[in-house]
């Protein structure tokens, strides 16, 4: 087992180098450079000033050399400073991660609660009118373009009804509030973003849940349990549901890297300073160190997720190890 583990981890290293190298290549080959994005279209930005910037960032050196430099620093966990404002890349990402993460986790909880609920209901009442309607609604939620539904809800709840704040994470006078008011303030700001993000996610989970539970209910052990005369509730919740939840857990595992991804569109509409916007702005500003930082984080999480999944399987099913 330790050898298998070691082999798997070592196998990730070339993959990791491949990913970072391709990223490095792609962003440096893309036209435009941090220098242009910085000067905007300023008639006073002289050519010499731009050349100065290029030298400062080391952009005048060959690409391979730049990659070598970058790798050397990464090994010491030094991601460098942003070209845009000189802030440390780690601190920039460090600020965006909690924001995106908390919204993703809240969303995930909502999606799970609603999705599992809907799925179980659907499986139990398979084919009923309510089942069909709920399936339809979940699917409808999945089918709406995010920014359209966001604007509609912001307009309805924010502007027309004045029930919820339109955008942002806090009110402008947040610092003057007491602890309780602060909590309420944040909660109110989170309602719409989390709702919108959840609406699009419920369909997937509820479908998996429904199918998985339906599948379990056809198994022999359920038939046996029923034959034994166990109450239906017990059969359902004690036996079948437990097993039916397993695939859901797998899906959760796979969604871990996604939790940090964030979505530009969603974050732009709601003015949320999360990972999606950080990444989008960095790409547009050609802020190479930040782009690389985020890609490395993403790649790391994805590879970690895959590794964990593999290892779990190998624990469950020793045959995989032998291959």
């Amino acid at each position: 087992m330790p050898i298998y583990f070691l082999k798997r981890v070592l196998g990730l290293i070339p993959l990791f180098i491949g990913i970072t190298f391709i990223s490095f290549l792609v962003i440096h080959l893309a036209p435009g450079s941090p220098v242009d994005a910085k000067g905007e279209f300023n008639p006073k930005m002289t050519l010499q000033a731009r050349e100065k910037l290029r030298e400062l960032y080391g952009l005048d050196r060959p690409l391979l050399e730049q990659y070598g430099q970058w790798t050397k620093k990464i090994i010491r966990f030094d991601f460098g400073n942003s070209f845009v404002d000189g802030e440390k890349v780690t601190s920039k990402i460090g600020k965006a991660v909690p924001v995106t993460l908390s919204i993703s986790v809240l969303t995930l909880l909502c999606v799970l609660a609603a999705g599992i609920g809907l799925g179980v209901f659907g499986a139990v009442h398979e084919g009923s009118r309510t089942d069909r309607w709920l399936t339809f609604l979940a699917l409808a939620g999945f089918s709406v373009p995010t920014f359209w539904i966001s604007l509609l809800l912001m307009n309805a709840f924010g502007v027309q009804l004045r029930l919820l704040p339109v955008s942002g994470l806090y009110s402008v006078n947040f610092d003057d509030l007491n602890a309780w008011e602060k909590a309420v303030d944040i909660a109110r700001h989170l309602v719409l973003p989390v709702a919108v993000a959840s609406i699009t996610g419920v369909a997937g989970i509820s479908r998996y849940m429904r199918n998985s539970l339906l599948n379990e209910l056809k198994q022999d052990y359920v038939r046996t349990a029923r034959a034994k005369g166990l109450p239906e509730k017990r059969v359902l919740y004690h036996h079948a549901l437990k097993n039916a939840l397993l695939p859901i857990v797998t899906i959760l595992g796979l969604s871990v890297p996604g939790l940090l991804g964030g979505s530009v569109i969603f974050e732009s509409i709601f003015s949320i300073p999360g990972m999606g916007r950080l990444f989008f702005n960095s790409v547009f500003a050609r802020d190479y160190p930040v782009i690389m930082g985020i890609l490395v984080l993403g790649a790391f999480l994805t590879l970690l997720g895959n590794l964990l999944a593999d290892l779990t399987y190998s624990v469950v099913d020793p045959r995989i190890r032998l291959k």
């Binding site: 036209p31 435009g32 242009d36 994005a37 905007e40 279209f41 547009f284």
Partner: peptide, 9 residues
Amino acid sequence: IEWGTFLRE
């Protein structure tokens, strides 16, 4: 076209 590309290219 987006600015960075616009100017450079």
